[in-house]
Computed example of a mutant assay.
Amino acid sequence: MNQRFIELGEGYGDIYELRELITSNQQRFTYGFVFISTNPQGQDVLSIAAAFKPASEGNFMPIYICREGIPVDSKRLKVFEQAVAQIEHTPIKMEVKHSSVYADRKFYYNHLISVLRLNHYIPPMQ
């Protein structure tokens, strides 16, 4: 199964797009994630993500993400948590390294996919 992060933005207006994806694809929604990291300035920032089952045809599992633009106590986090709660799920919170630690963003996303696989939130590579 091919899993890939699809970056919507940094969580400003795109949080509402992610909320819409969750509510309109309730039957495909699997998990919501809140990734907590510390930016180079020492501030805690959040990334929020939603993983969906593959479409009826194809072997692609999308994980939509708003990357590292959300402060810890933000209304945008509450919008995400409410959208996930409406479909009777609870977001999973994890501490991860900030993307600036990696030489390339694709390495950051590969690391996150590995962490999600190891914790059995997404299926193993086939």
Rank of each mutant, 00 (worst) to 15 (best):
T23K: 13
Y121W: 13
M125F: 05
T90M: 10
Q27F: 10
E57R: 15
Y109A: 02
S99T: 04
F52P: 10
D44S: 10
G13F: 13
S47F: 08
K93Y: 12
K78G: 03
V96P: 07
S100H: 08
I70K: 07
D104K: 15
D44N: 13
Q27R: 09
P62V: 02
V34Y: 06
Q126C: 09
N119Y: 06
S114F: 15
E7F: 04
N2V: 15
V79D: 08
E88Q: 09
M125Q: 05
I15R: 01
D73G: 12
L18S: 11
E10L: 03
Q82H: 08
V79P: 06
P124N: 14
K75F: 11
Y12D: 15
Y64N: 01
G69R: 11
G58V: 12
P123M: 14
V72S: 06
G32P: 07
I6H: 09
K106A: 12
Y12S: 07
M61K: 02
A83N: 08
P71H: 05
Q43F: 11
F29Q: 00
Y12N: 03
S100I: 06
A103G: 10
Y31P: 00
F33I: 04
L118Q: 11
A49T: 01
S37M: 05
P62D: 01
S47Y: 03
V45G: 08
P71G: 12
R67A: 08
D14H: 04
F5E: 00
I92W: 07
F107Q: 11
L46H: 05
V96L: 09
G42E: 13
N2M: 15
Q86Y: 11
F29D: 01
